[in-house]
Simulated assay, not measured.
Amino acid sequence: MTDFRIGFGYDVHQLKENVDFWLGGIKIPHHSGAVGHSDADVLIHVICDALLGAANLRDIGYHFSDQDPQYKGIDSKLLLKEVLVLLEKSGYVLGNLDATICLQQPKINPHIPAMKACLAEVMQVAEGQISIKATTTETLGFVGRQEGVSAYCVALIQRKNLPNS
């Protein structure tokens, strides 16, 4: 079995006025927010998918169906904690992750330190293991028209040092 594995996550959420905007576990002040079955935190969703994919554990929708009422409006940080339990049970820990948020407005760079601090606490890892970047699409496409937000993430996981291994 390999000691290192890489996973990839991608997600999109529609933006709607007068909805709270949760991103990276924090509430971003803005007139629009992402909509979804949960709190629609697109960054946490791609992190979950990247980690699950790296461990060959399918995807976030498989584990937390949007058809299941128990996940309606759920804080995505709780989903991330559950993903980390699954990762741990599979014998892996996070090496690092690198994520990019695609959003025209609001500007995300000022919020990245708070997102990293929040995610590091939830994941019980060092902030240095989490890279978050932000970009626009230069007004092109659904992101550029401010109709939605998308995010990408790659994660490196490594096998834990187990006794007698």
Rank of each mutant, 00 (worst) to 15 (best):
27 K>Q: 09
27 K>S: 00
28 I>G: 00
29 P>R: 00
30 H>I: 00
30 H>V: 00
31 H>T: 11
31 H>Q: 15
32 S>T: 06
32 S>Y: 15
33 G>M: 00
34 A>Y: 08
35 V>L: 12
35 V>H: 13
37 H>T: 14
37 H>N: 12
39 D>G: 06
39 D>R: 05
43 L>F: 08
43 L>Y: 15
43 L>S: 05
45 H>P: 00
45 H>T: 13
47 I>C: 04
47 I>T: 08
48 C>G: 07
49 D>K: 06
49 D>M: 03
51 L>V: 08
52 L>M: 07
53 G>R: 06
54 A>Y: 11
55 A>M: 10
56 N>A: 09
56 N>K: 13
57 L>E: 08
58 R>F: 09
58 R>D: 14
59 D>G: 11
59 D>W: 12
60 I>G: 02
60 I>W: 00
61 G>P: 02
62 Y>D: 11
63 H>L: 07
63 H>E: 03
65 S>W: 05
65 S>D: 11
65 S>N: 09
67 Q>N: 09
67 Q>H: 12
68 D>V: 11
68 D>S: 12
68 D>G: 08
69 P>C: 06
69 P>W: 04
70 Q>C: 03
71 Y>N: 13
71 Y>F: 14
72 K>Q: 13
73 G>K: 14
73 G>T: 14
74 I>W: 01
74 I>T: 09
75 D>V: 05
75 D>T: 14
76 S>P: 08
77 K>A: 08
77 K>F: 01
79 L>V: 08
79 L>T: 11
80 L>H: 10
81 K>V: 00
81 K>Y: 05
81 K>T: 11
82 E>T: 02
82 E>Y: 07
82 E>S: 13
82 E>Q: 12
84 L>G: 12
84 L>R: 10
85 V>I: 14
86 L>N: 07
88 E>C: 10
88 E>K: 15
90 S>Y: 04
90 S>W: 10
91 G>F: 08
92 Y>N: 04
92 Y>T: 05
92 Y>A: 07
94 L>R: 01
94 L>M: 15
97 L>N: 14
97 L>C: 14
100 T>R: 13
100 T>E: 08
100 T>D: 01
101 I>C: 09
101 I>M: 06
102 C>L: 15
102 C>N: 09
103 L>E: 00
104 Q>R: 10
105 Q>R: 13
106 P>I: 02
107 K>C: 05
108 I>N: 00
108 I>S: 00
108 I>W: 01
108 I>P: 00
109 N>P: 01
110 P>V: 03
110 P>E: 10
111 H>A: 10
112 I>Q: 12
112 I>W: 07
113 P>I: 02
113 P>Q: 06
113 P>E: 07
118 C>N: 10
118 C>S: 15
118 C>R: 06
120 A>I: 09
120 A>H: 00
121 E>D: 13
121 E>N: 12
121 E>H: 15
124 Q>A: 12
124 Q>D: 14
126 A>H: 11
127 E>P: 08
127 E>I: 09
129 Q>V: 04
130 I>R: 03
131 S>W: 02
133 K>W: 06
134 A>E: 05
135 T>I: 07
136 T>M: 09
136 T>Y: 03
137 T>D: 09
137 T>N: 15
137 T>Q: 10
138 E>F: 02
